[in-house]
Amino acid sequence: MFKTIGILGTGNMGRAIAMGLVRSGLIEGKQLVLYNIHKAKAQRLADETGASVVDSAAELVQKSQAVILAVKPFIMPGVLKEIYPVIAPDKVMISIAAGLTLQRLADAMPAGTKIVRVMPNTPSMVGEGMAALCFNEVVADAEKDDSVAIFRSFGKAEVVEERLIDAVCGLSGSGPAFVYMFIEALADAGVREGMFRPMAYTFAAQTVLGAAKMVLDTGEHPGKLKDDVCSPGGTTIEAVRVLEESGFRAAAMNAVIASAEKNKNL
């Protein structure tokens, strides 16, 4: 594993990464370096993890073997300009910014920089993230393994071809928002049928969690698992008919596609 990891930006994703790394035991807090433009925010995270806080983005890069660029895409150009002079050939630069390709990142860094592009998602904050990684040609195999291990410390992570990152953005990057809407809709219906809202949210969220775990743990096709719930002439198949008539599948597919297309044009 990288001897030192710097996290540049300690918002939701930066925090999730830091907490995941330390809680999993993948690294010790003293191996973690943090920087945020609002130092107090970085310090609060450091107090929880045992990390150190530095006074500038450049100092973070200098003190880190791997640097996780956990800033928004519109902030990234200014950050890369600031740290350009201190990006050395032995550093591994890991970007989680949506829409920024390996080539665009390479154009803003010194020639020969080792670059990793990652598309994580917000469930990383509770240790259930899903991330996709791709690498430029100068990242060594051991560095690839270490980069994947970082994101597996708070969920699942897979290496993909860069051409699939837009699809990943639409599916797992934006997907949590779609699931939250589904949970909210299920709960609203529960309230309509007489449940108190806190109970309805618990029933809806646990149902989604349990169904997702069934897919992952059994390896069964989701269609088969759906069929297993649908008794002949029963309540569930009647409800499935309503979902199909309402264009449920098409709406979900179109939402993923819309997000993926937007990511291509960022």
Results as ranks from 00 to 15, higher is better:
residue 64 S to Y: 06
residue 261 E to V: 04
residue 99 G to D: 01
residue 161 E to H: 13
residue 143 E to A: 11
residue 146 D to V: 03
residue 186 L to V: 09
residue 24 S to D: 10
residue 207 T to P: 09
residue 153 S to A: 15
residue 65 Q to H: 08
residue 137 E to Q: 15
residue 226 K to P: 05
residue 17 I to Q: 06
residue 92 V to P: 00
residue 265 N to A: 15
residue 237 I to V: 14
residue 154 F to N: 06
residue 37 I to Q: 09
residue 207 T to C: 11
residue 183 I to V: 15
residue 149 A to E: 10
residue 224 K to H: 14
residue 178 F to E: 00
residue 172 S to A: 14
residue 248 F to A: 12
residue 160 V to H: 04
residue 96 I to W: 06
residue 64 S to N: 06
residue 198 P to C: 10
residue 93 M to I: 14
residue 208 V to K: 03
residue 6 G to C: 05
residue 196 F to N: 12
residue 75 I to E: 04
residue 253 M to H: 01
residue 73 P to K: 14
residue 136 N to H: 00
residue 17 I to P: 02
residue 209 L to I: 12
residue 132 A to V: 11
residue 219 G to Y: 12
residue 45 L to W: 07
residue 20 G to I: 08
residue 58 A to K: 13
residue 36 N to E: 09
residue 126 V to L: 04
residue 239 A to N: 06
residue 195 M to G: 01
residue 49 T to Q: 09
residue 76 M to N: 08
residue 234 G to K: 04
residue 145 D to Y: 05
residue 30 K to R: 15
residue 105 L to Q: 03
residue 94 I to M: 06
residue 141 D to E: 14
residue 104 R to M: 04
residue 125 M to Q: 04
residue 70 A to M: 04
residue 178 F to Y: 15
residue 229 V to P: 07
residue 263 N to H: 10
residue 119 M to S: 06
residue 265 N to F: 08
residue 216 L to R: 12
residue 245 E to F: 06
residue 159 V to H: 07
residue 141 D to H: 01
residue 24 S to Q: 02
residue 216 L to F: 02
residue 113 T to Y: 07
residue 49 T to H: 08
residue 192 R to W: 09
residue 177 A to L: 10
residue 110 P to V: 01
residue 151 F to R: 07
residue 33 V to C: 06
residue 138 V to D: 04
residue 49 T to F: 12
residue 65 Q to Y: 02
residue 9 G to F: 12
residue 57 A to W: 09
residue 26 L to A: 11
residue 77 P to E: 05
residue 255 A to G: 07
